[in-house]
Design a protein around this nucleic acid. Structure first.
Lengths: 211, 211
DNA sequence: CCAGGACCTTGACACAAATCAAATGCCACA
DNA sequence: TGTGGCATTTGATTTGTGTCAAGGTCCTGG
């Protein structure tokens, strides 16, 4: 009933509209949920990091295209048995409800970002979120000097932030020039002072309790 | 345990951060969930229409400010008893999970709108959504000539669409000039051909099954 | 009937980000 | 050691939307 699936960076896990008869959760790596208009404009609408849930119980066909943005390891269950488990085990249903509500909150924060933030604030916000997510797995809170993995191409970042890849590149360069971040290769970012990055992100919320 | 609350257009139901010890569902009217950056930039992150659920079980304090955008009638339950009911009645929990998943899908469609659509497409999309929601309550599918209520000020529309109220006004005028819509007063919109409006909205999806 | 205010529309101009176009760096592989 | 391919950076220019400002419409209450 439980099994693993592995994908390389760039591989598609499922296409929007295709039948999907498993659900799963991310063990390692990162995946993006993507929507498109017919003329090709693309928006990433979800970022799946380790511990995130993939799939929707009670739905036959995937609503979004899921792509591995880095090498990805999923822990999967066949959908039907999982739905049975869900119906029979209130604690599992309750857990899934809480996770879904958290995702909804995250999506709503993202609405604020897409609707009202400048390009520079968007980039800073993305880095803040990745840092917080990474720290949360270790039950820590990011502060001071930190280093973080950026398992996304400029293009994927642009799709996530509602920008073009040129604008992403320019703003990353600008943040580097202003000393907010340093780059170690293309995919590792050093943040000399996390609090500075949070200021640049526009929202001064402290990231909430460590739940 | 169950009771009603009534609000006038413009009234605040709860402020973000305030204690909220009830949950509820919308009977009539419309409400908006709103987020803000400290410098005052505002983004509406949810639109509550009749049948929508308000509040989050297991959370003491409201995450968003809720404002009635038109006269509003809520059916409310005290939060604690509701949480007890939720824990004891799997069918209620299941129903709430489905509703939350639907809201998440709606939020994700909204991400695409905010990230990638032009101002004109945003306005058209909002009208399409309102028309579909109104029709769905009557188990119908909008087509041909339709008329719909617009229980939002230009300012609220701007907050929802990630635009300024001036741009909203200009684009509404442009859609009228191009014959896509007609106005009957400030708050009632006639759509001579719904399919045309859908084309203007950018996504050619047919709105899915009538579920 | 007029005054005041809330909401909306329109115009002129500014600016952030998109678009179009090269150039550069980097890595795998012959 | 070179070569081709790909992601990224940088530059020049355009454009859609924001900003600032003025004027209009409609409703309410004196």
């Amino acid at each position: 009933m439980k099994y693993y699936r592995r994908y390389e960076a760039g591989q598609v896990v499922v296409w929007a509209g295709d039948r999907m008869d498993f659900v799963g959760s991310v063990i390692a790596g990162m995946a993006g949920l993507t929507q498109q208009l017919e003329d090709g404009r693309t928006q990433m609408v979800g970022l799946l990091l380790p511990s995130d849930f993939l799939g929707r119980p009670g739905r036959e066909n995937a609503a979004y295209t899921v792509t591995a943005t880095s090498d990805l390891l999923l822990c999967c269950f066949r959908r039907k048995p999982f739905e049975k488990l869900l119906a029979e085990t209130p604690s599992v249903a309750g857990r899934l409800l809480q996770m879904t509500l958290d995702e909804l909150d995250a999506a709503r924060d993202w609405l604020l970002l897409l609707g009202r933030k400048s390009a520079r604030e968007k980039i800073a916000s993305l880095l803040v979120i990745l840092a917080r997510r990474e720290a949360a797995l270790l039950k820590r809170r990011p502060e001071g000097r930190i280093s973080l993995e950026l398992p996304l191409t400029r293009d994927a970042m642009a799709d996530y932030l509602g920008l073009t890849l040129e604008t992403v590149s320019r703003q990353v360069s600008a943040l580097k020039r202003d000393g907010v971040i340093e780059l170690d290769g293309k995919r590792r970012v050093i943040v000399p002072l996390f609090e500075r990055l949070v200021t640049e992100s526009g929202d001064d919320a402290d990231g909430g309790p460590l739940s």
